[in-house]
Nucleic acid binder design. Sequence first.
DNA 1: GCAAGTAGTGAATCATTATTCATTCTTTGT
DNA 2: ACAAAGAATGAATAATGATTCACTACTTGC
Lengths: 209, 209
Amino acid sequence: MAYRETEKMRQRKAEARNKIIESTWECVAEGGFRSARVTRIAGLAGVATGTLYRHFESREDLFAEIFRLATQREVDKVAEALSVPGSAVERLDSALRKFAQRALKGPMKAWALIAEPVDPKVEEERLVYRKAYASLFEQAIRDGIAEGCLPEQNPRLSSTCLVGAISESLVGPLSPTQTAAAPGTDNHQDELVNAIVCFCIRGLTDSRS
Amino acid sequence: MAYRETEKMRQRKAEARNKIIESTWECVAEGGFRSARVTRIAGLAGVATGTLYRHFESREDLFAEIFRLATQREVDKVAEALSVPGSAVERLDSALRKFAQRALKGPMKAWALIAEPVDPKVEEERLVYRKAYASLFEQAIRDGIAEGCLPEQNPRLSSTCLVGAISESLVGPLSPTQTAAAPGTDNHQDELVNAIVCFCIRGLTDSRS
DNA sequence: GCAAGTAGTGAATCATTATTCATTCTTTGT
DNA sequence: ACAAAGAATGAATAATGATTCACTACTTGC
């Protein structure tokens, strides 16, 4: 007997894997998924194209993984914003704000996650991601109804509407052409975020009904 | 001198063009843009693949054209719903309802128009289409503010939120896998439409502020 | 029916990249 | 140092479908 996988090797492989993930993310942040070429990714990671396939089943799988990771970060941030003390409405307000602000800070990444046309496997991940957001919001809405600070409503539907409203409002500002043309001032962005959050909160809270 | 294009020929060509448009739409209604093959489209239209290229610059251009046409119909319907007499809120309510109902009646078509990942040229058309909706809603919101039945707000942003909320709520129910699994009863759909419209109208009308 | 021009054809081509795999290079335990 | 096993390589391949284009079949006006 001879070669047996050792800790050192395991680490080295993990490192390579991370490098690949990193360079993929770099490519995506540059021009989205569609324009990220495996050759470029491998090149950036300092490995041969073939090596990439020792770590990931396929380009699509690699992308799905990247998507999952990036997404997890975002969802965690929103979850965090929702888990501070305060009324449900306050918590929702801060979570929506967080979502929008983060998106505007990394427009290309946000566009890739929210709106870029992607391959089926990645699209699947996107649905998961949107559901994750919706679930978070949904729970907060339920809390709000229980607390009495939100009127009776279908929490699932309302949360989906939140995700849609905020995503759509950001697509314009995020889309690559738009971004290139008009970077947008901080002030402008704050205003945008305010208006979006305003609409969303109103959508949930109407004091009639 | 000899051959000169005549009315008869012009008509015949127009007919062929229409046939191509029709069969493209048929393919799209079946499985979206991505899976629509030019060979199949040509076959259905009863022409050779090459002929298709005498009528359209490229597959993408053909798709963009189809998209534009389909979109125009939808936008017109919503415009119609907005142009009846009544308060702005009533008119918006009926327009949102129309939008949702039409989408649920032709799920695959709606999915292709609203959410399917598409090529750049088509995506461009999609932005135009969304803007068209947003503009319609925007005007109605302005009217509402003037009438006093809606509070002060950023009409452009609010209208974008409307489009987003309604699109997103429909994506789940529309996506091909979902549709195949659960056709959804008429009753269920009515409920869905109600909840969406409810959220949207609340988003616009909150009686505080 | 003929000449001049246009429309239609569809098999062959092309372009694009992801993926493979025969080969070379490393690691490991003895 | 050696044999056994795995890891890395990257040029060659493969697959996919849109697009082309040399050719045939029409139309037209005389």
